[in-house]
Structures are given as C-alpha cells and as structure tokens.
Amino acid sequence: MPGITREEVAHLARLARLELKGEELDHFAGQLDDIIGAVARVSEVADQDVPPTSHPLPLTNVMRADEVRPSLTPAQALSGAPAQEQQRFKVPQILGED
C-alpha cells in the first residue's frame, strides 16, 4: 500500500498551502516515500478490535462558565499584524467565495 508519488506530494503541498519548488518536490517525494514506507507498519493493527486513543487522558466535560473575560485591546490584537487598516487586519485580495 505505501508509496507516495511526486504528484501526490504536489497535491498535498497545495492543500497545506506550501509553494514548493520543483527540486523540493523531488527531494521530499523521495524522503516521504521512505518515511511512509516505514510508518505504514501501523496498519498491522488496523483490523484489531481496539478503540483508538485520541486523548492520552480519560478526561471529559471540561467546560467554563459563560462569563466575559477581558479581551485584548484592538492595538494588542493587531500588534503582530503584517499590515492593518481601519483597526482591521489588512490582507491581500481573497479569492473564492463571494
């Protein structure tokens, strides 16, 4: 089953918003193929009837009361912004949904 192609890596990079260069694609494709080949061992247990563990602790129902806590000031919120305008985060044009 394991094995990953250059095309798959390119697709994954797009999903992950990484503008990989051509030589990087080749380099990573080879390395990832090795890694996936090795870690694919886990599927040995795929058919075993054991519950998956998503959380290392058996905690449930950790909730907070619906009480307002102080927010950051807008200046603090925007303090790391690469660009801002009108007290808002200024970002390049957004494609897609209208």
Partner: peptide, 10 residues
C-alpha cells in the same frame, strides 16, 4: 470580493 484590491478582517 471580485475586483477587490485587498480585504480587511475583523
């Protein structure tokens, strides 16, 4: 969104 030069986020 179309033709916008940039967007502002709140």
């Amino acid at each position: 969104i179309h033709g916008a030069s940039h967007s502002l986020l709140d």
